[in-house]
């Protein structure tokens, strides 16, 4: 410790640097959101293991799980397609979902370590910048993962949707990730600690996967599971992506799923996803307002 800590007169007694009389709220919101996002990306850059694991894991799914059903009779999973081709969409959605589900963890740790207090005593334009930064970060991460899976499944022979189809895949992932990230951040503020949050993530993750069309088509399932799977938002992300992969002649009115209650079109699935995302984001508003207002 040095003993020469002398505050200079000029350094400490100037006029306030910030003039609160003319706040540029939008500019300030952008500034704080970017700074918080930058923090998350610096963390990622210095601890790349999360991203590495997030890319390796879905590739393992593709290779290992794909191989598991390699010898299934042709046509079992749909017209003239192999299980590998069938599986790609499920892995994309499951990976994005898992990442988004974990979005609340860093926020929870910030709460527990007191780092969040540093943000809360600062004159933020809006504390929603904290949520915004997480959403930007997780969405970017999911899109990177999705790109890696698309490339890998193309290499494994699953083919590629056309350019517009790929854009639509990205859009679907975006909707799902935004909604789930919102719910996870809501939980991060509602639950008492990271143990509880991890427990919730644990009981949500795999059941939602198995109760969706990620691994097998709807027609494979018993009736009751079909009902559950068609209530599961994940199915409405998986089926459109799968359809885009297998059909280059798609349109928004293409029927992508024969649910017990009727046929679902591509456009219909997208609407349901938009609804899910909106609902999720609206449902956490009162909670965030209470915790962050």
């Amino acid at each position: 410790m040095s003993s020469t800590l002398t505050p200079s007169k000029s350094g400490l007694s100037e006029k306030p640097l910030v003039t609160p009389s003319q706040p540029n709220l939008v500019g300030e919101f952008v500034q704080e959101t970017l700074a918080l996002t930058r923090r998350l990306f610096i963390q990622l850059q210095r601890r790349p293991s999360t991203l590495a694991a997030g890319i390796i894991q879905p590739l393992m799914w593709l290779i290992l799980f794909g191989a598991l059903f390699q010898n299934a009779p042709q046509g079992l999973f749909g017209d003239r397609i192999s299980y590998g081709q069938f599986l790609g969409a499920g892995v994309i959605v499951f990976t994005a979902f898992g990442g988004a589900l974990n979005a609340g963890l860093p926020v929870m740790f910030d709460r527990e370590f007191g780092f969040l207090n540093r943000l809360l005593v600062a004159p933020l334009a809006s504390r929603f910048s904290i949520v915004m930064a997480s959403a930007i970060f997780i969405t970017t991460l999911s899109l990177i993962q999705t790109a890696a899976i698309v490339v890998m499944s193309a290499l494994l022979g699953a083919g590629l949707p056309n350019a517009f189809g790929l854009a639509l895949v990205a859009f679907i992932v975006l909707l799902l990730v935004l909604g789930v990230t919102g719910l996870s951040l809501g939980l991060a503020f509602a639950l008492p600690g990271h143990i509880e949050l991890i427990a919730v993530i644990f009981v949500t993750n795999l059941p939602l996967l198995f109760a969706s069309t990620a691994l097998v088509p709807l027609s494979f399932m018993p009736k009751w599971l079909q009902v559950v799977a068609t209530l599961n938002p994940l199915s409405y992300a998986i089926e459109p992506i799968r359809y885009l992969y297998l059909h280059n002649d798609w349109s928004f009115s293409s029927i992508i799923m024969q649910a017990p209650f009727g046929n679902v079109s591509l456009g219909g699935a997208l609407l349901i996803l938009v609804g899910f995302c909106t609902l999720a984001l609206i449902s956490i508003q009162p909670l965030l307002r209470r915790r962050l207002a």
Binding site: L17, V18, E28, Q31, E32, L34, A35, L36, R38, R39, I42, Q43, R46, R47, R118, L119, A122, P123, L124, A125
Partner: peptide
């Protein structure tokens, strides 16, 4: 994970 300078930069942005 942040350096001292990065933390101060974050802090500066939070105070605009």
């Amino acid at each position: 994970v942040l350096t001292g300078r990065e933390l101060l930069e974050l802090q500066a942005a939070l105070y605009h």
